[in-house]
Simulated assay, not measured.
Amino acid sequence: MNTLCRPALLAIACATLLAPNSRAEGPNPIDADRAFGYLEQLCELGPRPSGSGAMRQQQDLLRQHFAPLADDVVDQRCTAPNPLGGPKVLITNIIARFNPAAEERLIVCAHYDTRPLPDRDPNPTAARAGRFIGANDGASGTALLMELAHHQEALAGPLGIDLVLFDGEELVYNDRRDPYFLGSTWFAMQYKKGKHPGGKYKYAVLVDMIADADLDLYYEINSWRWKDTRPLVQSLWKTADRLGIDEFHPRTKHQANDDHVPLHKIGKIPACDIIDFDYPHWHTESDVPRNCSSESLAKVGWVVLEWIKAEQAQAAAGD
């Protein structure tokens, strides 16, 4: 049995204490201030429900943002009944494509519309006629996709990447009457029929309500229960653990019916929802930028970006 003298043992102990945390991966490449600036810019447009003037302004802003960064920007349109009656509402998904020639692809997606009213506001008058800005519920995921578009070194690989913004996620005035997920349902139907920009999707990652100042992210129950999606969930949360991002908790807590459901049910795409459902300002007038966090946005963005890099490396290796 080999033995070490006391000075050698002391040197090893010191080296262990001074060694960097094995979970660390260097500084977060996501620009937290820039991402949060996008969130604020979107919120300055005011409420952005489907078919509204502010939504059209937002669409112009997003097309202008993605045009110089992505290889292609595609609008995908359909119409939906107006819950209040009158002319149908134009629903427009915006797809920013990277490496559009690649057959195998990944989706990172979010909804960019806001609910028409803050229906859960504790003030009954506000719930019936208030303004819903949707800083976390709508703008946070959109802002993160805007930020991810800058990281072209990760997006340019053997896998094609589609950053997809869904319209009509909650054009809902009455929960018992009005359907959710209009844009993602149309997207999934077109994909199923082969009437989409092209390629086959390996995975879809949905980000929703990811800027909560008190961020806690659990496995979403649908995402975890679907056998084809569970490896995706595990990969994302393991990535967070490797990066030392402790806000990702590897256990289930909430079940969320969200845009990933039609992607999985109709499009048969393994689809995961990264969502913080413990948000006290959900569907209230207080869902505004001051209750959101640039740090939270950056942490989620780092996990998604590192996951994309790992998927690109795996595809390049032929696995």
Rank of each mutant, 00 (worst) to 15 (best):
M1C: 12
T3S: 15
R6V: 05
L9H: 07
L10I: 13
L10Y: 11
C14Q: 15
L17N: 11
L17C: 10
P20N: 06
S22T: 04
R23Y: 09
R23M: 10
A24M: 14
E25T: 10
N28S: 13
A32Y: 01
L39D: 02
R48F: 14
S50G: 04
G51Q: 08
G51M: 03
L61K: 08
L61D: 08
L61A: 13
L62N: 01
H65G: 07
P68N: 11
A70F: 13
A70D: 06
D75N: 03
Q76D: 11
Q76K: 09
R77P: 07
G86D: 10
V89K: 15
I91F: 14
I95F: 07
A96H: 09
F98H: 02
A102L: 13
E104G: 02
C109M: 13
H111D: 08
L117W: 07
D121G: 04
R128S: 15
R131Y: 11
I133A: 04
G134E: 15
N136G: 05
G138F: 08
L144G: 01
L145I: 01
M146P: 14
M146N: 07
L148W: 06
Q152P: 00
A156M: 04
A156V: 00
G160P: 14
I161A: 11
D167N: 11
E169P: 11
E170I: 03
N174D: 15
P179H: 05
F181E: 01
F187H: 14
M189N: 08
Q190I: 02
G194P: 05
H196N: 13
P197C: 11
V207M: 09
A211D: 08
D212F: 05
D212P: 03
A213V: 05
D214N: 15
Y219F: 15
I221Y: 01
W224M: 10
T229F: 01
V233C: 14
V233F: 06
K238A: 12
D241M: 03
G244M: 05
I245G: 00
E247Y: 07
H249N: 09
A256P: 00
P262V: 04
P262D: 11
H264F: 10
I266H: 13
I266W: 12
K268R: 15
A271K: 04
A271P: 01
D273M: 14
F277S: 03
D278R: 01
P280M: 09
T284K: 13
S286E: 09
S286Y: 04
V288S: 09
N291C: 12
N291Y: 14
C292W: 12
E295Y: 10
K299L: 13
V300S: 15
G301D: 11
W302R: 11
L305M: 10
L305S: 10
I308S: 13
E311I: 01
A313Q: 11
A315C: 06
G318T: 10
